[in-house]
Amino acid sequence: MLLAIDIENKITNVGIFENKKLIGNFEITTDKNKSIDEIYLILKLMLMDKEIKFSDIDHVIISTVVPELLESYSKISQKITNKNPIIISPGVKTGINIKCENPKEVGTDRIIRAVGASDFYDKNIIIISASTITTIDYINDKKEFLGGVILPGIDLFEKALHQESAKLPQVEILRPNKILGNNTTKSIQSGIFHAYQNACWGIIENIIDERKLKNEKPEIIITGKYANFLANDSSKQIPSLGLIGLGKVFEINKEK
């Protein structure tokens, strides 16, 4: 079995692959202050809950945007499999050509999502990762990663509005039925939702216009915690897209 670990700023996604198929996944909180032993125990318990033992794991692959945790997870991987994990870094083959000014600056989370999406489609793709940090990336039909946009997630819209005002309450983030709210809470909820949705879809329209993709009809893929707030008939939701990408990168780089 393959253990795939995608470490993001707030959440670490963990997937288990068997014969190239994602057979299970779970999330744990990303915490730079947790010790190796604590992380090891959490992983062990979460896998046991899925009736999987560490002894079932043959390989580990890791992507992280939190450098402080790389050493910890690498040591845990060595402890589980007695071998070094594959780490998404320069030199690892991905099947994606990063056509940016400095490819090393592109977050590995964005790269593995591009790999996962390109494994589904051989056409122009726009990927929205709707998380606390939202990214919108464009990969063309030649599997070239041409760049993207980074903006706050919908939860940061809500957090900023609450923290920067003296009287506005903290509210639940939801999809309102109407644009106009008839009380303060509903007005805030409408403002947060529509600001986020219009920002993301407006950016997508701008990408389509700038890259002259109207006739190409790019595939629009949404993933991430807040994907439901953006989904519509012109898009497809693919949960665990980063883990799917990690599984693909493993297959490209595994020892023959």
Rank of each mutant, 00 (worst) to 15 (best):
H162E: 06
S35E: 00
F26A: 04
S72N: 15
G247E: 06
I139N: 11
G107M: 04
S35G: 03
A130S: 08
I86P: 08
I86L: 15
L47C: 04
K99G: 01
A195L: 07
T132A: 05
D37M: 04
I150F: 02
G91E: 12
Y40L: 13
A130D: 00
F157K: 03
P67W: 07
K44E: 05
N232V: 00
E251G: 06
D56R: 01
G191D: 13
I52G: 05
E144C: 10
S118A: 15
I28M: 15
E38H: 04
Q170T: 07
L45Y: 07
K217T: 09
D119W: 08
G224A: 08
I61Q: 06
K93T: 03
I207V: 10
M1T: 04
I154S: 09
K20N: 15
Y138A: 09
S63F: 04
V149L: 14
S72V: 13
I39W: 08
Y226L: 06
I61A: 07
K123S: 15
E38N: 08
E105Y: 07
E205P: 05
K167W: 09
H194P: 00
Y73R: 12
S131L: 01
L146V: 06
D58Y: 10
I154R: 09
I222H: 03
R211K: 15
F54V: 09
I7H: 04
P218T: 03
T94D: 03
K186F: 11
C200H: 04
I87M: 11
Y73E: 12
M48E: 08
I76L: 12
K212R: 14
T81Q: 04
G245Y: 04
Y40V: 00
N177D: 09
I133P: 02
N215C: 10
V92S: 13
T81K: 05
L41S: 13
D56L: 02
E255D: 15
F120D: 01
N198M: 12
L70W: 02
I80E: 05
I16F: 04
K159H: 10
G24K: 05
F17P: 05
F157G: 00
E210Q: 14
A227E: 12
A199W: 01
W201M: 13
L156D: 00
K83A: 14
C100M: 14
S235E: 08
K214M: 14
N19A: 12
Q237R: 14
E205T: 10
H194S: 10
T132G: 03
V92M: 12
K167V: 14
I208W: 04
D155L: 03
V115W: 01
L241D: 07
L243G: 00
I87E: 11
G15I: 03
I16A: 10
S165A: 11
S72P: 10
T185L: 06
K75M: 10
K212F: 06
I154G: 11
I126L: 12
I80M: 08
Y196F: 14
K217S: 13
L43R: 07
S240V: 03
D137N: 15
T29Q: 14
D58F: 08
L22P: 14
E68T: 11
S165G: 10
N19Y: 12
R175W: 00
K142R: 15
I7E: 02
F54L: 09
I96Y: 06
M1V: 07
I126V: 12
